[in-house]
C-alpha cells in the first residue's frame, strides 16, 4: 500500500493492514517534524510532491525491497502540505516472518525514498525559509 495524502497519517490502520498470520515481525518507521534543524528553530514544514511520479518511484523502491527481502506486507504513506512540529511526515511499515528482514527492508526503503522520490520540503523558520537540499 503506497499513498500520498494531505490528511494526518493513521498509524492504527497502517498497522492493521500490515498484520497477517505469517508475520512475526513488523518494523514501523515514522518520520516526524522536529522543532529544529541544526539548532535553528523550525516553525513548520511545507511538503510538496509530484504525485504521479512520487507514487511510481515509491513503488519501484518497494518492488526492489520485495526482491531483496521476503516481505509479507509493506506500506509507505507520505504526507504533503503544511506540517507542524510533532506531526508525521512519512510512515514506512514492513511485515516479515523474521525481524532482521523487517529492519533491513524498512531502513532501505526510507533511505532510498530520501534519494529518489520527487517530494520536496521547505523548512519554515521563525526568521526565514529554505527548500531542503536545494542549494549547493
Amino acid at each position: 500500500m503506497i499513498a500520498i495524502t494531505t490528511d494526518p497519517i493513521d498509524v492504527a490502520s497502517a498497522l492493521k493492514y500490515l498484520q497477517s498470520d505469517q508475520a512475526g515481525a513488523i518494523d514501523l518507521f515514522l518520520g516526524v517534524v522536529r522543532d529544529n534543524t541544526q539548532e535553528r528553530p523550525v516553525d513548520r514544514l511545507e511538503y510538496e510532491a509530484y504525485d504521479r511520479m512520487a507514487i511510481s518511484e515509491m513503488q519501484k523502491i518497494a518492488d526492489e525491497a520485495h526482491r531483496r527481502w521476503p516481505l509479507l506486507r509493506y506500506t509507505i504513506i507520505h504526507r504533503k502540505g503544511t506540517l507542524l512540529i510533532g506531526e508525521m511526515a512519512v510512515l514506512i511499515g514492513v511485515a516479515t516472518a523474521h525481524r532482521n528482514d523487517s529492519f533491513d527492508a524498512c531502513r532501505y526503503m526510507i533511505d532510498t525514498i530520501k534519494q529518489t522520490v520527487p517530494i520536496w520540503k521547505k523548512e519554515v523558520f521563525t526568521d526565514g525559509e529554505e527548500w531542503v537540499n536545494a542549494h549547493p
Binding site: 511538503y47 510532491a49 509530484y50 511526515a89 530520501k114 534519494q115 520527487p118 517530494i119 520540503k121 531542503v132
Partner: peptide, 29 residues
Amino acid sequence: VAVNGEYAEPTQVLTSRDEIALIPPVSGG
C-alpha cells in the same frame, strides 16, 4: 528532468505530447 513520470537521460528526445517536469534536489521523508 522527468519525462512521463520517469527520470530521463540528457539525450532523451522530447515531444510536445510528453509530460515533462523539472526535478530539483528531492527532500522527502
